[in-house]
């Protein structure tokens, strides 16, 4: 899942991006309002975290312009200002959440995940695709009662494919949303991870859960069944 974090504090930019990457998010950073607007309008972000007091354009202005341009990203306002009027102003301007500095990291992550779910219209932390269940909060997955032992990248791909269930997901999207451009597009890391996922699912009796669509990408069905229960 791709997150844009905008803050004029370098320490916070570095720390938050590090923390989000540890949690499996792909992160882009901006330090002022105009840059944030440029990046957010070009890229596709599940969540944009906007500091209110930004050089150039303040967070409220960036938020207003994003909404006016039809941007559908979930937007969290982040600020050291605690006045209720500021919160109301932020939420009324189209923000989806409002968090006051200093914040607890766990709370920040939980809110980001909630926003991600909301972005993909997934109301619960538990994503159920037939026999496959993915706990988005705990970052764990099961087929029936058996838990899949997944590496973070594998879980990221499974999560992203699951959230986009029924849609074709390109390799570029996986590269951006899961790998945060940390690998080259020509690398076979994505294919290797998908292959490994298929193997793990097959071990649990689920075959062809992830289909390859030639020259387009991958597709995961919305309802996945074990072979003994029927067809995947």
């Amino acid at each position: 899942m791709r997150v844009l974090y905008v803050d004029d504090s370098k320490v916070l930019r570095d720390t938050v991006s590090r923390g989000l990457r540890k949690a499996g998010f792909a992160v882009d950073l901006a330090e002022d309002g105009p840059t944030a607007l440029d990046i957010a309008l070009v890229g596709e972000y599940a969540v944009v975290v906007l500091d209110v007091m930004l050089p150039g354009k303040d967070g409220f202005e960036v938020l207003r312009e994003l909404r006016e341009s039809g941007n559908q990203s979930q937007i969290m306002m982040l600020t050291a200002r605690v006045e209720i009027a500021d919160r109301v102003r932020g939420l009324e301007s189209g923000a989806d959440d409002y968090l006051v500095k200093p914040f607890a990291w766990e709370e920040f992550l939980a809110r980001i995940r909630t926003l991600v779910r909301r972005r993909y219209r997934q109301p619960k932390d538990l994503l159920e695709l037939g026999n496959l269940r993915i706990d988005l909060r705990a970052r764990r997955a099961w087929v029936g009662q058996n838990e899949l032992v997944l590496r973070p990248r594998e879980f990221g791909i499974l999560e992203y494919l699951g959230l986009r269930g029924g849609q074709v997901v390109t390799r570029t999207e996986i590269l951006e949303e899961v790998y945060d451009h940390s690998i080259d597009l020509k690398s076979n890391a994505i294919d290797a991870a998908v292959c490994n996922l298929r193997k793990l699912l097959a071990d649990e009796g689920v075959n062809d859960a992830i289909k390859t669509i030639p020259r387009r990408g991958y597709l995961m069905e919305k309802r996945i069944r074990r072979d003994q229960d029927g067809n995947a």
Binding site: V16, A80, P102, F103, W105
Partner: peptide
């Protein structure tokens, strides 16, 4: 608040 947020995030991350 800003430096406290920075300190807290540094430690928790």
């Amino acid at each position: 608040r800003t430096p406290v947020a920075e300190l807290r995030s540094l430690a928790e991350v």
